[in-house]
Design a binder for these strands. Structure first.
Lengths: 340, 340
DNA sequence: GACTGGCACTCGCTACAGTCGAGTGCCAGG
DNA sequence: CCTGGCACTCGACTGTAGCGAGTGCCAGTC
């Protein structure tokens, strides 16, 4: 039952070879390419045990072995050696991200960078509004009954929304409104604003109350409810690389899943303090992604986390490399945000 | 050389059948499914002529015929009968777009709607900044040396950008700056702003000149140069529908092309007054899309055009249906923008 | 002169048999 | 516990044969 060190080494070798060659790996090839110090026959015995335990399987009798999801899991948890990034990669990351001019640009560059380095599909969540604080609220008069509300978060993210007032409003009153809402809300974390917005109505001067009421509705929608989360995606073309061997023949389910923002958020958005997360094949909750693996992590300035990013690829992926890249990119982006 | 009416009818029948069945169509099947009033042998003679002229071809000897790009072109230009949208489709369009709350939402909904109705890849360009007018410019003080510049266009599009000032600035001066730039620029079409921005520097009061100089640089970047065009994409999963028969086996080149914003812009952005455009296979300038067709059109409130939208699919697509849908959606969106 | 029925021909597709070889499981011996 | 040897399995590949959809051509008919 217990797997001794050699069996684990065999499993590791199988995973590494299979990931590299994309073909079932046999006992003979294994001893040739790795220094296992035993004969093919011995390896075969080990393989039989590994198969019994569910870590590897045979596509057909008389074919080599292929890791199962469970095998990859064990590999990731206990067997993979950390693969440090090459200096060239580090430089690429720095250079690529250095030129960013604003938040949108940072996210765009990050997602392309990730896709390029890992050669897989990359997903980056914009800094979540819920996790940011209000830096400034602006009211821009468009006409006497229309205002443009602009919310600026401390992460640099900006949301805007048109407000249709119930009655015409004076310029001075707009200034008044702006002052009031800023006094009340600046510096507050967005997820904490609802009660304060509520209070705004009650505390406002009578003749502004109707305006404040509609305004606060829109505020609530903008701050909390409405497409609160945005997401950037890149590298879908990489899905078509593995010649349809990955993803059991059809990209369709995967592409479909990637079109749903909700799904993407689930993939990378559930950020716990646990920094980095790997979900392998069946471990994914989304049915369409049962043939895929996801490596995701949170990122943000310093220790706080403002969003998630990650990479999606075939279960047969280079886990050590991908993990190292995702971790490195997330750290760089975090530093970039901290400088701001 | 000249193709008489029956030969054209045969070509039309071939296109329609091939689009429907995805299989080469033979003379016998043709006379069975269409009322051509002649025998298979006659149809075969017509086919021979059509093939000689390059409108159809045989994948292999002893197979049915398949339209060539040139055949589709003729079909689109002269043979396709307009296919009016079903009331259900019209209602779907209206319902789907009615719920939009702001410009971003309109674009998002439009692109998903197009993808869903045509069952293909949809592309929608955000209203081009170059073609909009400045509605309002806002300067929000972040710190004494930092301003947030917000540009609001009359199409509802909003761009923002951080401005790093060379020296600290007083609150009153910010108000001054804001007033000046608004006086000068509001109502101007964005593509016309550069000379005016230049003039801003020269006309500003001496002690504000350094601030105005950096500000105008950023203004120029924001108004004209920087990722001036944004694009929304949906329906990529539809590419994987045709079971790899379309796109000659690999989705990769197509997916790659779709990742390049520049390419997408080329596809749908070159908007001439000519309302609707169909590019078939080889007619596409982008090599990766030689196996695809694109149906695109401009849209905007009333007669003005503020951006493009379109649909991409296999050359073997339902042209009449796609054309009708794209045209209808563009018109609805135009009306929606006009109401604003 | 245009259309049609008939006929020989082409050629991709499928099924089937046979061979090859990678890879396995098992066993006896060190 | 490991190893070398051996029989066995089964997928991949090859070659052959038959089938049938579809064609091109030609002689005959209206």
């Amino acid at each position: 039952m217990g797997l001794d060190d050699r069996k684990l080494a065999v499993l590791r070798a199988i995973v590494e070879d299979y990931v590299a060659t994309q073909e079932p790996v046999g006992s003979k090839a294994l001893v040739e390419r790795h220094q296992l110090g035993v004969s093919p026959a011995t390896v075969r015995n080990d393989m039989a045990v590994l198969e019994e335990e569910g870590y590897i399987r045979q596509p057909h009798t008389s074919a080599g072995r292929v890791p199962t999801d469970r095998g990859y899991r064990l590999f990731v948890d206990r067997l993979s050696r950390v693969k440090p990034l090459s200096p060239a990669e580090r430089r690429a990351i720095e250079r690529f991200l250095a030129g960013a001019v604003d938040l949108d640009d940072v996210v765009h560059r990050t997602v392309r960078l990730l896709a390029q380095l890992t050669r897989q599909v990359a997903v980056v969540q914009y800094p979540s509004l819920a996790r940011s604080r209000v830096r400034h609220l602006e009211l821009v008069p468009i006409s006497t009954t229309r205002l443009m509300l602009v919310v600026i978060a401390d992460t640099g993210r900006v949301e805007q929304r048109l407000v249709e007032l119930p009655a015409p409003i004076l310029a001075d009153d707009v200034i008044d409104l702006r002052r009031t809402i800023n006094e009340k809300l600046v510096g507050i974390q967005l997820s904490e604003t609802p009660p304060l917005v509520q209070a705004l109505i009650e505390e406002s001067v009578p003749h502004l109350r109707p305006a404040m009421t509609t305004l606060s509705t829109v505020l609530l929608e903008t701050l909390v409810e409405r497409h609160e989360e945005r997401i950037a995606l890149a590298g879908t073309a990489n899905l078509a690389r593995g010649g349809l061997l990955d993803f059991q023949g059809s990209l369709r389910p995967v592409l479909e899943a990637l079109e749903e923002e909700v799904v993407l958020l689930k993939l990378i958005g559930e950020v716990e303090p646990s920094t980095l997360r790997v979900r392998i094949g069946d471990e994914n909750e989304i049915d369409n992604l049962r043939a895929a693996s996801v490596v995701s992590t949170g990122y943000g300035p310093g220790a706080t986390i403002v969003g998630g990013m990650g990479v999606l690829g075939p279960t047969r992926m280079d886990y050590p490399g991908t993990i190292a890249t995702v971790r490195a990119v997330a750290r760089y982006v975090g530093e970039l945000l901290a400088q701001n």
